[in-house]
């Protein structure tokens, strides 16, 4: 129990640092606002190493904390929409046989962007935002694949020390 709590706290802190790094150095992908989503690396790791409820707690905690520290309320709304949708999709795919970390992470990246697009369409009340769908799908695919690759490399090392 204590070990699990310590581990969750450490991963939340790590996600916050990643979030801060991306505020300092935005990895731009051509579309304003698109990010690599380094903090998502922590969530994918947590999904594989901790119970789903624990991973969800880390996801919500890091979004709320990063938004309060480095962002604003509207940022929290978008992050929560993307973050919760991608969490649901990833924890579902993780249970299905035949997907690797990379596949799970790609699904997470894509669904994260779709969640944010839906909230954006509701906020500005303009359906024409669907024009961003192709770019957001590909961006989610690329960032998800990168995060998945990183997770695949880091996971065995972390598991050894866990």
């Amino acid at each position: 129990m204590a070990k699990k709590a310590a581990y969750s706290a450490m991963l939340t802190a790590l996600a916050m640092i990643f979030g801060y790094v991306e505020v300092l150095i935005p990895f731009s992908f051509g579309i304003p606002g698109i990010k690599l989503g380094l903090a998502n690396l922590v969530i994918v790791l947590a999904l594989y190493m901790l119970p789903a409820s624990q991973a969800l707690l880390i996801q919500v905690a890091r979004i709320v904390l990063i938004s309060f520290l480095f962002g604003n309320m509207s940022m929290m709304l978008y992050s929560l929409a993307g973050g919760l949708l991608s969490f649901c999709v990833m924890s579902l795919l993780r249970r299905i046989q035949g997907f690797s970390v990379i596949g799970v992470s790609i699904a997470g990246g894509v669904s994260h962007n779709i969640g944010q697009l839906i909230v954006a369409m509701l906020v500005v009340k303009n359906l024409k935002l669907t024009y961003y769908l192709p770019a957001l799908l590909i961006a989610g695919l690329v960032t998800g694949a990168l995060i998945g690759l990183l997770t695949q490399k880091i996971k065995p090392v972390l598991e050894k020390s866990y």
């Binding site: 035949g98 997907f99 990379i102 596949g103 894509v110 989610g140 695919l141």
Partner: peptide, 16 residues
Amino acid sequence: LQRKDRILIIIIVIIA
């Protein structure tokens, strides 16, 4: 990459 990963990637690219 596993088989289902590839299928997922192909589906996303087709939709895009």
